[in-house]
Write a protein that binds this DNA or RNA. Structure first.
Lengths: 241, 241
DNA sequence: CGCCTACTTGACTTACTTCAAAAACAGTGG
DNA sequence: CCACTGTTTTTGAAGTAAGTCAAGTAGGCG
């Protein structure tokens, strides 16, 4: 039982009710942890992974690589997340995973997980639920990037990132680490770098948020939520803080 | 064993390997089928459904309703699809479901499914896989609506719809039914109605597709795929035709 | 100090949205 | 069969927001 196991147990427990035997089962997982540099890829598009990645520290992202060379970020992941759980039952990766800022990632062999699901079906459901929450976040991203004006769109992303950080107690008061560059922010929200910058300035001017140097600061949470049309229902968090 | 069971079995079998016992188990499902008018909602945002919907005939869509009143379509579903399988483990619907064109939908009680998963874990995995494929389609939609220019975006959607229709043998040669209006097309792709119309005209002019009166006609499949930057990998279809 | 990367800003251009109006079409009832 | 209504599609014109391009600045690190 090391840090990787603990962080996984904590995360699953927030979404599902684990029994003692489930926790014990998780404790038996082989889990090799490796460290990655900022922007280092650790699962590539087209691969057929035999391990499931578990974020242990730092932040991790998934992205599509287009034929044009453009990148589209799909989601960001915090410690305890299993950003490629779908690899268990979908053979070929349709997207890649990379570290955002320095990150450490654990790798659990698929066969260990499958064996665990057989022994503890409840654990399988907990993992399933994780992948469903993932999908809910994707749905919200479709809507965010398709239907909301740029400033609202950016505010919404900030709300989501802060809300999830706080949900995992990774915030420090009204701040959290989001070590992404403006280019990456643009590649997440579907906007050019110049617009990212100007929109960011506009948001600062509202006095509700600030984002600089990889640090997200929430100044007025309620106002920012309203501005970003953010309602956290889709994150389906059980615990509120 | 009625049409609903058959269509479900056929669909699951395309993605997963069902054993005889799995098929038999599915045959025991209670499944009340109801008919819906075009644009009729049958699951609302915020609901806590106790049944899983199964598309039996026609087309079904999921959508978000924004506070501004705008609609964002998230995905379209064909016979055999389980468009709200996530409702099994996520309590509250974060989006709604409606019929696109006339459709008939079966409703299977969650407890039936959960019981079946206990008896046939393999069946649970088949359903899980369905939800993962769903998520892959969502990811692609994020990228499509965020990173691709309008004509490419529309061409990509047409490719996906045709490819999936063909995968379920719902095409007639190079045609398939897509009974959506231009407004809905715009609410899917994140573009205004005027742009939808003009983009459509532009695509027709390329001589690769035509879409009118709810009918999608593929004129030059290879060229359309190239134009739409479409590669069907993300649909993870086992069978190719 | 100089280099590299990330951010900032400005000017220009293109694209899309919005608004408005007309045309095509489907369904209804006379 | 045709006039009438409402809806969907088509088209035009105007305004604006966002992309692109290009240059400049600031910060981090050797």
């Amino acid at each position: 039982m090391n840090e990787a196991h603990q962080v996984l147990i904590r995360n699953l427990n927030e979404q599902s009710r684990l029994e003692q035997e489930d926790v014990a089962e998780i404790g038996t997982f082989q889990c090799a942890v490796r460290n990655f540099e900022p922007n280092e890829d650790f699962i590539h598009q087209g691969e057929k992974p035999e391990f499931a990645a578990l974020v242990v520290t730092g932040m991790v992202a998934r992205y599509h690589l287009l034929s044009s060379g453009r990148r589209q970020y799909l989601s960001f992941h915090l410690p305890g997340d299993l950003p490629d759980a779908q690899g268990l039952f979908i053979e070929k990766m349709d997207h890649a995973l990379c570290a955002i800022g320095p990150a450490s990632v654990g790798f659990i062999p698929h066969r260990e997980l499958l064996r665990a699901f057989r022994r503890r079906p409840n654990l399988g459901i907990a993992f399933w639920r994780e992948t469903l929450l993932d999908a809910a976040i994707f749905r919200e991203a479709i809507t965010n990037n398709s239907a909301r004006p740029m400033p609202v769109r950016m505010a919404h992303l900030f709300c989501e990132l802060f809300y999830r950080s706080r949900g995992s107690a990774l915030n420090r008061g009204n701040r959290c680490k989001v070590p992404i560059s403006l280019v990456q922010l643009g590649e997440t929200l579907g906007m050019g770098i110049a617009t990212v910058n100007r929109t960011l300035r506009e948001l600062r001017a509202t006095g509700t948020v600030d984002f600089r140097d990889g640090d997200l600061t929430i100044v007025k949470w309620r106002d920012l939520q309203r501005l970003g049309d953010f309602s956290p229902d889709y994150l389906h968090m059980k615990r509120h803080r």
